[in-house]
Amino acid sequence: MPLKASDLKVGDVHTARLVEDLKRTQIVQYAGASGDYNPLHTDEIFTTQVAGYPSVFAHGMLTMGMTGKMLTDYVGDARLTKYGVRFTSQVWPGDTLDSTATVTEVGGGIAKFDVKTVNQNGVEVLSGYAEARVD
């Protein structure tokens, strides 16, 4: 259900758990669907032995995609007008992610949000904003 401007006030917070114990297989699923086959995300041998990371890690865009579900579940289908993020920390297999949208502005048929996703240690992995049409 789309949001109503009259139901929103600055400071309102919507939260959702995006994933619990992220599996390597989900990262593989995202690679296949998105077409981003960078071995850093799916190839443990390459990533540890050649690239020098402790393990494969999730595509930033997987975190942005999962965070997008939190947003569209909140604002409704086809309601987003803007959505942008910075990837502030890597996401690893085994991570549990929670995401928050905080209302920063409502008016003129548009609601604006701060968006943030953190891991199980409270480390921010994604930080951004969104705007949506509201009734």
Partner: peptide
């Protein structure tokens, strides 16, 4: 571990094309 032989003296970073490119930001306007 990689299908590409690194050029002598080349690379640095993660080498093999691996240490380099990461996604920093993404913005959409719908």
């Amino acid at each position: 571990p990689t299908g590409i032989t690194r050029a002598p003296g080349g690379g640095g970073g993660g080498g093999g094309g691996g240490g380099g490119g990461l996604h920093a930001e993404q913005h959409y306007e719908y």
